[in-house]
């Protein structure tokens, strides 16, 4: 039974691993920290998996556990010190997909994202993942109106960073 559970979990996670990578991308700024957080999220997901019921989508459930781990449960390990830094766009991108200004803008945007606090990052993450305000408010435990207000403030903040 346990083996079956393990197998189904790992298979699902392998398929949806990008969600975790995206969380890690937002909350860490070097390769080791990325891996470290990825591992902790995976462990937390696995711990919660026996209680996972099919009534929620696996990915939706992952968002919740992933963000909770990043903003609350995760304790930075010592391993994440002394490693080379990368900015948010270090992952290989195809050059032809970008014109110069857009690429530059994106770089600045990703840098700006990294400067946001943990909670703001979570809101932006859910927004980027195309979640509606109902889901954002449910994931964070704040009201929908406040989630909307906050999101608008973040947008303004990013706009000012881009066009000072």
């Amino acid at each position: 039974m346990n083996k079956e559970l393990e197998h189904s979990f790992v298979e699902l996670l392998e398929k949806h691993q990008n969600i975790i990578h995206k969380v890690c991308r937002l909350y860490t700024n070097n390769y080791d920290a990325h891996n470290d957080l990825f591992q902790e999220i995976t462990i937390q997901l696995w711990k919660a998996y026996p209680k996972f019921r099919g009534d929620a989508k696996f990915s939706t459930w992952m968002y919740r556990v992933g963000l909770n781990t990043a903003i609350t449960l995760y304790r930075k390990s010592k391993r994440s010190i002394n490693t080379q830094q990368f900015d948010g766009v270090e992952f290989k991108m195809k050059a032809e997909d970008y014109d110069d200004t857009e690429e530059q803008q994106l770089k600045t945007l990703y840098n700006a994202l990294h400067q946001l606090n943990d909670i703001d990052k979570a809101l932006v993450f859910l927004y980027l993942e195309d979640k509606d305000y109902t889901e954002i408010s449910e994931t964070m435990g704040i009201s929908e109106v406040n989630a909307r207000v906050k999101m608008n403030r973040i947008k303004t903040k990013l706009k000012t960073i881009l066009n000072p």
């Binding site: 691993q17 991308r25 992952f91 290989k92 803008q105 994202l113 932006v124 927004y127 947008k155 881009l162």
Partner: peptide, 19 residues
């Protein structure tokens, strides 16, 4: 700005490590 980011965010899946 966020729409620009969103476009990029959801565009490329191969930029992440594949475990």
């Amino acid at each position: 700005e966020l729409e620009l980011l969103k476009k990029d965010w959801n565009k490329e899946d191969n930029k992440y490590p594949k475990l």
